[in-house]
């Protein structure tokens, strides 16, 4: 299958990436190359094959309900692009 410009733009929006107008054709082209590469697997008969989301056919171990994490706000916010009064700051969000 080949992707259209519309699909690529929609996927870029979902991914929160800008694609400059002068690059869009290259992006479409290389996405189509990748899709052509992966197309091969469509020939595989996977009827009744269960998906394999993880190599381990194992099950989740659970953590005891204990508070183990101390307050490290100072350390974490030291590396934040913009933190004020203990809050992470972003341009105004209108709900």
């Amino acid at each position: 299958m080949k992707v259209s410009k519309e699909v690529v733009e929609q996927v870029a929006e979902l991914s929160q990436l800008n694609i400059p107008e002068n690059e869009i054709n290259d992006v479409i082209e290389s996405l189509n190359q990748v899709l052509a590469l992966v197309e091969e697997m469509q020939s595989v008969d996977t009827t009744d094959v269960p998906v394999m989301a993880n190599p381990l056919d194992a099950t989740q171990t659970l953590r005891a309900d204990k508070v183990t994490e101390p307050d490290q706000r100072g350390r974490f916010q030291e590396i934040a692009p913009d933190a004020r009064d203990g809050l992470y700051v972003v341009p105004r969000v209108v709900e």
Partner: peptide
Amino acid sequence: EFQGATGID
């Protein structure tokens, strides 16, 4: 909290 900005907790 802030002028023209949103704080995240």
